[in-house]
C-alpha cells in the first residue's frame, strides 16, 4: 500500500536542511511538482507546526508533516525526504526523516497510515530509514513491512 504511493519520484535525499521549514518545503516538492498539492498546503503544514508545536515528530527522528484536505490537496499522496543530518524543531525534538502526507478526505488514507504505523512501531525500522541513502534501500524496508 505505502509502496504504491511512495514511488521513486516521490523520494528525495539531501545532506542537510537549514531548518525544519526548509526540510518540509524540500520534502513536499515532488507532491507540488506532480500537482498532488497546491503551495498553500506547504504553507499550512508549516503554520500548523508553529501553532501546535512539533507534534508531527511522531517518533524521535521521524516527522510526518501534514495539514487538512481543504488546505490544498488535489490527490492522495505521500512523499519522503531523508536527510543525512537531523534538523532541530526545538530543544527536544529533531528529525531526519520527513514523510509528507496529503490526504483528500478523513478516510481514504487510513489503510496507508495503518501500514505506516506498524512500520514505525519498530524502532529499528526508523533507524534503517534514517540510514537509507537510495530509493532501493527504502523500497526494501517498505516491502519487508508489507509482507
Amino acid at each position: 500500500m505505502l509502496s504504491e504511493y511512495l514511488t521513486s519520484e516521490m523520494i528525495s535525499f539531501k545532506e542537510s536542511a537549514e531548518n525544519w521549514e526548509e526540510a518540509i518545503k524540500i520534502a513536499s516538492q515532488p507532491l507540488l511538482e506532480q500537482q498532488f498539492i497546491e503551495k498553500e498546503y506547504i504553507d499550512t503544514m508549516i503554520s500548523n507546526v508553529k501553532e501546535f508545536g512539533p507534534y508531527i515528530v511522531m517518533v524521535p527522528g521521524f516527522a510526518m508533516p501534514h495539514a487538512r484536505p481543504e488546505n490544498g490537496v488535489n490527490k492522495l499522496g505521500v512523499s519522503l525526504l531523508i536527510l543525512g543530518k537531523e534538523t532541530l524543531f526545538n530543544d527536544e525534538k529533531a528529525a531526519s526523516v520527513f514523510l509528507v502526507l496529503a490526504a483528500t478526505d478523513p478516510e481514504s488514507h487510513l489503510a496507508l497510515l495503518s501500514e505506516l504505523s506498524s512500520l514505525l512501531s519498530n524502532e529499528e525500522n526508523v533507524a534503517r530509514l534514517a540510514a537509507a541513502r537510495s530509493e532501493s534501500e527504502v523500497f526494501t524496508i517498505l516491502k519487508e513491512e508489507s509482507k
Binding site: F52, I56, H66, A67, L101, P106, H109, L113, S114
Partner: peptide
C-alpha cells in the same frame, strides 16, 4: 488528540 485529527491521532489510537 492531535492538531488536525486525521493523521497522527488515528495512528496513535490504534496503538
Amino acid at each position: 488528540v492531535c492538531g488536525n485529527g486525521l493523521g497522527s491521532s488515528f495512528m496513535m489510537s490504534m496503538n
